[in-house]
Design a protein around this nucleic acid. Structure first.
Lengths: 183, 183
DNA sequence: ATTTTATGTCAGTCTTGTTGACTTTCCAAG
DNA sequence: CTTGGAAAGTCAACAAGACTGACATAAAAT
């Protein structure tokens, strides 16, 4: 942190964008005001930074980045998945993913097997070392999440998940649901 | 999406990392299992993508990036803030922030005034055009959040905020609280 | 007068995204 | 059977945006 250890972002002049803040009715729609939304947006921003902070520290020591973490995570989650599946999930170009996968394969963390039916496909698996790294990364991330869950309580967690699922694009929600049913 | 419009990430083999999943007691600690945590982690990942998707579309047309959005957001929120304050909040280097601020000032979206008391400081303000862009960006983002909030309901929103605040680093939580008291 | 602070700049690197061009493989229509 | 297109993956080059390090300037603090 800075020298003051206390962030004070200028005089506390809150902008009043009230155009859609009018409580349409007298009831409990206060949680939909622009001000409430802004707080949620900022919370999302700061929380995501915390969310990635702990794995980032580990990745840095290996000169890997978040892209590597994401690849390893989803390969661990669904061993044998193809590059194309991964592309849909990660939402990046195949060239971008390929660079990451190449380093992971070269470093002996991921194994890429030619598809038994369709030889164009590559099926991806973690090696033992890959599983080790994945464990280390996700345990770091889980530790923070576990603390947050515990502090917030089960009902808050349910709300958390509920809102997140409505923020994401529908295909992704569908994807998560699909996995949930299977798991 | 892809041609299939349906993401199927390989055979649905769920890894069972049960080492800390043992329900310590028979009570309601099920929300702390590794599996629940993994679902939360993935939800966070997908939701954050949705969270940034709409502003990104607007930014692209202007050849700006998320960095510009963040700067404009926090300058709008706290007009007159200094560069140093912004650095603490955004958590980037001054070189990185400076590149963004320079383009915003050159493009006439941000005004940088020499501090009245301390002439070393630069106080940052949005111009009229800057405010317009900020409105456009945050309205795009709020629209998605509003829909999610409405769909999830007020209790879920409360839980959402509660968990997010526990995920972020304490300084950031303090910062948000500080602003909340003032607003 | 010296040091510290706030800001800005230049140069160079790294990660991770992009597009374009290419090979290999598969499948289906002629 | 062949051929042409689609799909999967790879290589090369480029851009955004983060980073570090070195340095400059001005003003405040000591």
């Amino acid at each position: 942190m800075g020298p003051s250890d206390e962030i004070v972002i200028g005089p506390n002049i809150m902008q009043e964008h009230r155009h859609s803040d009018l409580p349409i009715s007298g009831e409990g729609l206060l949680f939909l005001t622009d001000d409430q939304l802004r707080k949620g947006i900022e919370a999302m921003f700061f929380a995501y930074r915390g969310f990635t902070a702990d794995p980032d520290l580990i990745l840095e020591t290996l000169s890997y980045g978040r892209a590597h973490h994401r690849a390893v995570h989803f390969i661990c989650r669904s061993p044998g998945t193809t590059v194309n599946n991964l592309l849909d999930i990660l939402g990046v170009t195949k060239q971008s993913l390929n660079r990451v996968l190449r380093t992971l394969v070269n470093d002996g963390l991921v194994e890429s097997r030619i598809g038994p039916q369709d030889k164009r496909e590559r099926h991806l698996y973690l090696t033992e070392r890959g599983r080790q790294l994945e464990q280390e990364l996700s345990e770091a991330q889980r530790t923070r999440m576990r603390a947050a869950y515990r502090a917030a309580g089960p009902e808050a967690v349910q709300g958390f998940r509920r809102v997140l699922e409505h923020i994401m694009d529908p295909q992704m929600r569908k994807f998560l649901k699909h996995m949930r049913d299977g798991g």
